[in-house]
Every structure is written in structure tokens, then in C-alpha cells.
Design a protein around this nucleic acid. Structure first.
Lengths: 358, 358
DNA sequence: AAGTTCTAGTGTAACGTATTACCACGTCCA
DNA sequence: TGGACGTGGTAATACGTTACACTAGAACTT
């Protein structure tokens, strides 16, 4: 193992001098000395030991990222975007799959802390963070992704999310505009802030349009163990099958995310339903699979790339204490992306014919 | 920051004793002492500093995992499985998205080394590892995933993969058995060991059946920059469109992986082709999306869970020097999973009608 | 009784880097 | 001429943990 002192010996200088070179403090150093050190570094192919460096400095240039599951393409994509952003700032990212399990989340947080990681992006957004607060030391900075945060929250120091409520309302309004009144909702357990927001948004928009909500059309997966995000598509399939075998099935369904919607597409097909003729489906997220589905999925787009950029820069700014940040909590606007999985219900009078052409 | 000596002070013992407790060496320790230490740990909510711990021991309980892209569900799933396996052995996993970029791969390897990580699972399988060898120190252990390794290779110390050749042959034989003779192949650049194997397997099987290969049906994505695994579906879409607009288009296509196949499904549909009536599609991997597609995808299954288990255990065994390992290089059998994306070509005489019922 | 082994610990030197205090040597100006 | 200052560098210490050598006292053995 080649260390800083090997370099020093080779260059004929002291370790501190080498340290100064590595850390760019060579302003008032003789050019010849500088060059000798650099040559020695190159010749020995020396890599600074990140561990030792950090034991000393107390912090490490690594961010933690806790997500429900990278097996879900949405989170896979987000993870990748976040990693890329972080890299540009010289940080690495430690990805943790917590499967929406509070115990696992707490364990990861504790373990990240033990690894001297002081900045964590929380991708899963459990409703309550109380189970985490005791594992979050004061010197840790937690950024929430996909979660609006109440001001005065003491554990979350910054957050970036899409307006969940608005997104759900856009989706619902789109369906109502097409003439649907029996609109279902498919989701996993409402155990996260984002899901709560989406369901609430849908309810609000239905109410605004004077459509009474049939609670039997709100399908929520049982809160069974082992059903993390990896099974989202499967849950969507099960959900739509239950809804469609109801006495009075829905003519449209809003899924809490695209993976559920993809599962819904599949489940509906199994029962002989055509999408969109017999059933309209709207998703959420706009993962890249959405447009490749059959039919291409109408969905609510989250600007994942922008969101990744914002969380990472805000979190790192806070960690490094760079200037004051204007607004640590940002909420972005989601967009409705109309593709081919939605249309007017069979025999309905379309109240907003303009949607037909999109 | 509460350290081991705070615990020691509180429990009224020496640091060594606390260290012994932490590391489970309390065999010959008085029960009362043990309990006092444990109480102190709990009271102070002490977490061992993984960094310091490791600076001392020289190694860290973290594995590196270099994958093309977690945005691809296959790798997302594999990452998750590997992480779960590793965790059971007390290891964490550092996931690195290298986008099949040799430069990035080398950078990651170097950075992992700088973080004292000595065990790395290489998910991307570039044909040549020469660009990596100079960044791989002798004390690093590299496990290859999805890559058969020649014996005597000095940089790879263990490997787990599926027999790529056999998988491709199963797929090809299936199509030939259905009566197809104009069989296309869709893939990204053949820059990896696994892709080479799959193409070779297809060629071999075609030859064995006396079917001449039309080279114009072998579609390989251009080796353009920015086209990593995140765009696999998109590439599949483009590929099939080019093949289907040929003067004499194929009646079936074998895709290098499921994401390409999903893209192919979408591209074929855009051109008015029905799958499987007008075009049979076979994928590779059997990601969980395969069975949710329309139509459900016939594919070659890789036992990802078993593979994850095997790489992790082999790699950790080697790192820890546990006993000698029987066989560091294991090759598993892939399976053909027949679903609904394949059938006999229109008007063909089926030579193996048995496939029809599956 | 003296020697030996065992028990239940203790004390301390590393691990590789960063930081702080410090020093030697010139130069410049009063 | 001497001291303040700038330059280029050295030496010592600390970071939190572990490994290893060590010991005080008790319990055996001969």
C-alpha cells in the first residue's frame, strides 16, 4: 500500500508538503518542489486514502440515498440522476434499498451515520418521521425527495418535490373532462406523504366537479409484509382485477404511479378489457417505460432530472455551509402527458372534446 | 460525537474491553461487566465509527458493485438482490453506474480502492479488461457477474454467469422450431462478453439447423456516446423499425435483453405489426416486466436471485479467506420461458407443434 | 510453598492522513 | 544592526478503533 510518506520519501520532502500539494495549497511553493512532488505521485500511482483523510477531517464526500427500491425503474432512474449530479460536485452516493420498511430505514440511517456520512437524501417518504428522529443526529442533514415538508420540521433540512395534489388533480380533471364519472384509484398502502397527497388531490378534484366518490373504487393494496416497491406492477394487476370484477366497475382508473398503471394495463387485458376503449388508465411519474407500453400511457410527469439536480445542490450547499440558500423547500409543477391509454368512456358525451385530438 | 472511550469511561472499564464487547469477544467476560458495557452503549446511543474501525483493520465491510445502469430494471433488480445478500453477511454495497463507459469504470475502480474497498462485483462485462487491470491492485478481488471467465485470468478472481451461448441457442431453437427462418437479432454494440456470447449462440444454432444467416437482419445499435443501458428500450424500438422496413423483413427477432425486446414490441406496433401474429419476439433475462407486457414476453430466464447469492458468497469467502472455494467460476443454465410473444410465422408449417400449447 | 496456568481484564502502539506549531533562512526597513 | 515579516519546509499530535502484549490476582499442581 503506497501512502503519503512513500511519496514524500521519493520526492525528498516531508509528508506535510505532499499533503499541501494534494490539497492545492501550493501557492507559495517553489515550482521545482511542486513538480518533484507531482512526479513522485504519478510515478508511484498514489491514491490518497479516503478513509484516513476523513477520519481526520471528520466528514466524507459521500451522500446517502435511501429509496424504496432501485428495482422500480422510477427510483432506478432517480438514483442514477442523483448519482450523476453528486459526482459533479465531487461526491459519491451510497444507495440504500429500504423497501419502505421503517426498521430498515432506521438501520440504514444509523449505519450511514456510523460511516461518517452526514448528508442523506430520503427518497421514501413515510408519513411519520418519528421513527427516524432518534437516529438522526443534529449534525446530519436530511433532504427529502418527493415529499413536501412542513416548515418548522426539525429533522428535514431541505426538500424537493412535485405538487402531488396538483398532479392528482390534473389526472382526475383529465378523466372527468373525457366524461368519466366512475373513476377508480389504485395504490399500495397509503403510508407515504406522496401517496396521501395524490389520493387527496383526486378526492378534491372529484368533489370540485360534483362527482361523488364511490369508496369501493379506491383500491389499496393490503399492508402485507414483503410487498415493497418491487411488486408494484403485480399489485396494480391484482388491484384492477378486483375493481373490474365489481358489480359496477369503473370506466377509468388513476394509479398512484406508473408501475401500478402498467400492472393495471396487464390485469385489464387479462379480463378481456381493452384500454382505452373499455378502461382508461392514468399513471404518475412518467417513467421512460410509459411511452413504450401498449397503449402508451397517459401519465403525470415528474421532472426527475431537475428534481435530482435541486436536491443534490441544496443538500451539498447545506453540508458545506456555502452561503445561505434562498429557499430550502421547493415544490415543482407536475405536467399532464396525454398519450393513448385514456379516452372517453363508451357511449359517453364528451364534455371537453379537445382532449380527443391529443 | 460519542466514541468508544466515552463508553469506556461511563462503564468504568478500559477501551479494549468495550472493543471486545462490540466485536463479540465476550466469551470469557464476567456477565456483570458485559452488561455494564452494553448498558453504557445503549445509554449513550453509541455507534462504532466504521471509518476509524477500518483504518485500523485495513479493510471495510463494503462491496463495490459496478453496473451499466440501475435505470435498467434488470440491473436494478440484481443490485437489490446483491445488496440483500451482502447485508446478510454484514456487508454494505456501493453501487456505481458506469454506463458501460470504460473511463468511468476505471474511475470507479480507483475511487473504490481509495475508499479501501477491496471486493468489487463487476456487472458490466466489457470484452477486454485491460483498461482496468492497471487500476486493480493485487489486493483487490474482482467478481464477474454475467461473464464467463477464462481460467488463468489474473484480474477476475471469481465469476457467476449464465451460459450465454446456451441461452441464445434455446431462444433460436424455439423460433426455428416454430418454423421461423428469417430471424433478426437486435442489440446494442457488441462490446460485452455476454452479448458476444448471445450473438454467437444464435449464429451457432442457425448454422446447426442449416439456416443461412442474413447479416442484414443483425441489427446493432451504433456505438454512439450517451447511449448506455438507460436507452435500451428506445434502441430496441429503433432497431425493430429498421428491420421491419427492410425489403424482406424478419418474421421473428431475438433481442439481446428484455428491455430491447420491450422496445421492439413497441416499435413493431407503431408500424402496424401484430405480435406474435406478424412478428415473434424473444427477449433475454426475464425481468419481472416481461410477463406484464402485451403480449407477455417469451424470454430466456436468468436466475438472478441465485446468481446474486453465489457471487456475493464467493466474493466474501475470498475476501475473508474462508476455507478454499471448490470452484470460483460457476456457469448456470438459463431457461426458456415461453409466453405469448412468439408463434409460428404466418402460413408456415410448424415443425414442432408442441410449442403451440405453451 | 513455590511454581504454573487461568481469568478477566488493561495499556498502548499502530492505521494514513491533516493540522498546528514551529523553525531556518532571507530580505527589508527603520 | 536588529527585529518584523515572508517563504519553504519540518515535527508532533490527533482522529477512533483494533491487535497484541501484558498483568494482577485467583486457582490449581506438584
Amino acid at each position: 500500500m503506497v501512502g503519503i510518506k512513500d511519496v514524500a520519501a521519493r520526492a525528498g520532502v516531508s509528508v506535510s508538503t505532499v499533503s499541501n500539494v494534494i490539497n492545492g495549497r501550493h501557492a507559495k511553493m517553489r515550482a521545482e518542489t511542486l513538480q518533484r512532488v507531482q512526479a513522485a505521485i504519478a510515478e508511484l500511482n498514489y491514491t490518497p486514502n479516503a478513509v484516513a483523510r476523513q477520519l481526520q477531517s471528520g466528514h466524507i464526500k459521500t451522500l446517502g440515498l435511501v429509496v424504496p427500491s432501485v428495482a422500480n425503474p422510477f427510483w432506478g432512474n432517480v438514483s442514477q440522476l442523483i448519482e450523476k449530479e453528486a459526482q459533479q460536485r465531487g461526491y459519491q452516493v451510497m444507495i440504500c434499498n429500504a423497501e419502505r420498511d421503517p426498521k430498515l430505514e432506521a438501520d440504514y440511517l444509523k449505519s450511514l451515520y456510523g460511516s461518517s456520512i452526514r448528508g442523506v437524501i430520503l427518497g421514501s417518504s413515510p408519513l411519520s418521521l418519528s421513527h427516524l428522529s432518534e437516529h438522526i443526529s443534529k449534525d446530519m442533514r436530511i433532504a427529502a425527495f418527493d415529499r413536501k415538508t412542513r416548515a418548522g420540521n426539525d429533522v428535514i433540512s431541505c426538500s424537493v418535490s412535485v405538487d402531488q395534489d396538483l398532479g392528482a388533480r390534473l389526472a382526475t380533471r383529465h378523466l372527468i373532462g373525457l366524461g368519466h364519472t366512475r373513476i377508480g384509484f389504485i395504490s399500495g398502502p397509503i403510508g407515504t406523504a406522496s401517496r396521501t397527497g395524490r389520493l387527496a388531490g383526486m378526492r378534491a378534484e372529484m368533489e370540485r366537479s360534483g362527482i361523488e366518490i364511490d369508496e369501493s373504487l379506491i383500491w389499496l393494496a393490503p399492508d402485507a409484509a414483503g410487498f415493497g416497491d418491487s411488486h408494484a406492477a403485480e399489485l396494480g394487476r391484482i388491484g384492477i382485477r378486483e375493481l373490474l370484477t365489481l358489480d359496477d366497475p369503473p370506466t377509468a382508473v388513476f394509479s398512484v404511479n406508473d408501475m401500478y398503471a402498467i400492472g393495471a394495463l396487464s390485469g385489464a387485458r387479462e379480463l378481456g378489457y381493452r384500454v382505452p376503449e373499455d378502461l382508461s388508465v392514468v399513471g404518475f411519474d412518467d417513467i421512460y417505460l410509459a411511452k413504450v407500453m401498449h397503449p402508451p400511457l397517459t401519465t403525470i410527469r415528474q421532472p426527475a432530472d431537475l428534481m435530482a439536480e435541486l436536491v443534490v445542490s441544496r443538500l451539498i450547499d447545506q453540508l458545506e455551509g456555502t452561503d445561505e440558500i434562498a429557499e430550502p423547500h421547493v415544490v415543482l409543477r407536475p405536467d399532464l402527458v396525454v398519450r393513448s391509454s385514456t379516452t372517453a368512456p363508451a357511449g359517453a358525451i364528451r364534455s371537453h372534446p379537445r382532449f380527443h385530438t391529443q
